[in-house]
């Protein structure tokens, strides 16, 4: 088990074995954040490696002002955004505020087969949301970060985080209600 207070000074002295403990402790968090932003497994692994290399390089600047997990998640989030921008896959032409105008894939036999249960349908909806919304939902529901922590990770104001969460859930709920009605009929 990684102990922040005791183990960070050891890493700063050059102990790579202790750094491996840190990687093992936070690799799932980093993979979850990066997977929500990127799609290709190879890209995901490359970015995750870069994240931990950045963590190692910048660990000296970590002043225990936040939880280490929040600090690492922020590096993972920013690295994913940089990667998407670098390969021009970050949709800046589509402001995340316009969620209501987002067009989801129309239901067809293929997508219907893929989402034969509500849970799969929700996952499909999630994957079609803009990356920022996916990240906020994942950080809140899956990683159980607070609004303040998500604001620190993404650099968005806390009010924006709340608003993104609310709108994404409301929109998904409306789609789900329509889907469930169709299922019952």
């Amino acid at each position: 088990m990684f102990n922040e207070q005791e183990d960070i000074p050891k890493i700063l002295k050059g102990d790579l074995a202790v750094f491996e403990l840190l990687v093992k402790q936070y690799e799932r968090l980093v993979f979850t954040v990066v997977s929500r932003m990127l799609n290709q497994q190879e890209d995901i692994e490359d970015v995750c490696q870069e994240v931990f290399i950045k963590v190692h390089r910048s660990l000296r600047s970590f002043k225990f002002a936040s939880k280490l997990s929040t600090w690492i998640a922020r590096i993972a989030y920013l690295s994913s955004i940089n990667y998407l921008k670098k390969y021009k896959r970050f949709n800046t032409a589509f402001p995340p505020e316009d969620l209501e105008q987002l067009h989801f894939t129309e239901e067809n036999p293929e997508t219907a087969a893929l989402s034969k249960d509500a849970s799969a349908y929700i996952n499909r909806l999630m994957n079609e949301l803009p990356a920022v919304y996916r990240t906020v939902l994942t950080l809140y529901h899956l990683q159980e970060f607070s609004y303040q922590e998500i604001a620190a990770i993404t650099g968005m104001p806390e009010g924006t985080v709340k608003s993104y969460l609310f709108r994404a859930r409301k929109m998904m709920k409306e789609k789900l209600v329509a889907y469930l009605k169709k299922e019952i009929v």
Partner: peptide, 14 residues
């Protein structure tokens, strides 16, 4: 249903 689905662990491959 939505909250339950969102809390399900993501199948990430480490």
């Amino acid at each position: 249903m939505l909250f339950n689905a969102l809390q399900q662990p993501l199948s990430v491959h480490v």
